[in-house]
Each structure stands twice: as C-alpha cells, then as structure tokens.
C-alpha cells in the first residue's frame, strides 16, 4: 500500500469528514472535522497500519477564527509512509478529543499542548501541566502572551517575574532588511546599525 492508496481509502471511508487534502514536498496533509477525529484515527491505526504517532502539536492562528489548530503526525512503520492530520479548534470551545487511548504516547504530548496552549482534551486520563508548574495561571505559547512572561505571585507554590528583554538580544524586528538590521543586539537597541560596525561578518 502506498500513501496515495491510504489517503484514497480514508476518503472513501469518511467522505464527509475530510475537507481538504494538500501535498507539499511529498507529504500529505488532511484537514478533517474535529467530531470525527477519533473515528479517523482508530480507522487509520487498525485498518491502515498507522501504528506510530510521531508528534502532536498545536498552532495559534491569533486573530483568525477558528483560532487554534491541532496537528497529528502519523507514520506507518509497516508501510513506511507518513500522514498529517489537521483539525481546527475554536477559541470559545477550546477542547479536542483525546487520542491517548489510541496511541498511548499522546498522553504527554496532549499534556504539553494543554500546558502551553490551553487546549483541553476530553477524556484525557491525567490532564495536568507538564512543563510549567501546577497553578501557573497562563498558557505561554499563545501569541498574545509576551515572551518575557508575566508576574505571578503564589506564596509557597510558585512565582515568576517578567524577564528583562531590553529591546534585545534575540528579538527580531519585522523588516525587509538584512540579518544585521532584523536582529539588532542589545548594544544597538534604538539605533540603526550600519554595516561598518559588523566588519567581522561578511
């Protein structure tokens, strides 16, 4: 079985749930309805040999509706091909069905998504934060969360303070200029660096 056959069979099995198919550099992505995510995943695992869940990730399309997107990377070790499933999650609903009973590896992946993006997984066995501490009030990978963080104060439990960014380093200015202009170091914050100052760089 090739990847094309698998996608074709999957589309035949779920004609209403698969909205869109995109090809990019030999990788196939399917945009599917959230309501039939579990059915499609079970079908893919049991009937089509996708026995390996490579990764679960989430995307924040801040300013668009629906805001979030879940991405599941499947792989068939038997047939050696890859399939990507994408489904949308709206900001109001903010939940997705868990796949941790289908692929147990999804357990911690979904905890990470919950921790950093704030999407809740229905029927997840152990939905706790995994990187930030229990009781942290924010979800830091959301686009509206500042990189330097926010002040939290919970005596005895945890605390955090905004980090001093001071206009850089590691801050990119949205411009069409060269790397030197786009990524000023802290000592150049506020002034436009001239190429003469970067003699060490080509």
């Amino acid at each position: 079985m090739t990847c094309e056959d698998a996608v074709k069979k999957l589309r035949e099995a779920f004609p209403d749930s698969i909205h869109e198919e995109t090809q990019f550099r030999g990788e196939t992505s399917l945009r599917i309805a959230k309501s039939s995510l579990r059915d499609i995943c079970l079908h893919a695992r049991d009937r089509m040999g996708f026995d390996y869940l490579v990764d679960v990730s989430s995307v924040d399309h801040f300013g668009q509706e629906p805001r979030y997107e879940m991405v599941y990377e499947l792989y068939s070790l038997r047939n050696e091909f890859h399939l990507r499933l994408k489904t949308e999650v709206s900001e109001d609903d903010n939940t997705a069905p868990t796949v941790s009973d289908i692929w147990p590896t999804a357990d911690w992946h979904e905890r990470e998504v919950y921790d950093l993006m704030g999407i809740r997984f229905i029927d997840h066995p152990d939905l706790r934060r995994i990187l930030m501490w229990e009781g942290y009030p924010y979800h830091p990978l959301r686009k509206d969360f500042p990189l330097e963080g926010k002040t939290t104060e919970m005596p005895g439990v945890a605390f955090s303070e905004p980090a001093p960014l001071a206009g850089g380093p590691f801050v990119t200015i949205p411009t069409d200029g060269t790397t030197q202009v786009r990524e000023p170091r802290a000592r150049h914050a506020g002034e436009i660096p001239s190429p003469e100052k970067f003699l060490a760089e080509p």
Partner: peptide, 16 residues
Amino acid sequence: SGGMYRSYAVLQGIDH
C-alpha cells in the same frame, strides 16, 4: 543572571 534565557520560564539569576 538567567544567561541567554530571557523568557517566561527561567529565573533571572539564582540570587533572586
């Protein structure tokens, strides 16, 4: 001082 990790997750120096 927190080093290169100027971020929400890192304490900016253990002397805090």
